[in-house]
């Protein structure tokens, strides 16, 4: 599949993950989120930005329990828990948030 944004076509795999991580921008993130039925709030962006930073540092998309733990460490337990993250990303903070963040499917996500 592909996304159309600002007159450009951006390639994605059959599940909607970007083929090329460098195609990502905030407009595209908004578009992917819309496809997923998510209206991006500052809380959503906080997680998306965290994921992008994680990827920049470690070159992988974290498994969901690793993400949860890492968020708890950085932003505190009120955000680093399953309930909070699943409310933001009902189809899974690993898979769905990674998709919006332009990252590959999480490694070690089974």
């Amino acid at each position: 599949m592909a996304y159309e944004t600002n007159g450009k076509t951006v390639e994605a795999d059959e599940e909607g993950f970007l083929v090329n991580i460098n195609d990502w921008n905030e407009d595209l993130a908004g578009l992917i989120a819309k496809d997923e039925g998510i209206d991006m709030s500052p809380e959503h962006w906080e997680v998306i930005n965290f994921l992008r930073e994680y990827y920049a540092e470690y070159q992988i998309a974290p498994a969901v329990r690793v993400l949860t733990k890492a968020i708890a460490k950085k932003m505190g337990p009120e955000k680093g828990n399953n309930k909070y993250l699943y409310e933001l990303f009902p189809y899974g903070p690993g898979k769905q948030a990674c998709k919006i963040a332009g990252l590959p499917k999480p490694t070690g996500c089974v």
Partner: peptide
């Protein structure tokens, strides 16, 4: 090619 060496540093988080 992708430099995957930074990922070894992620193992601790796993």
């Amino acid at each position: 090619m992708k430099n995957f060496s930074p990922t070894y540093r992620a193992l601790e988080g796993y």
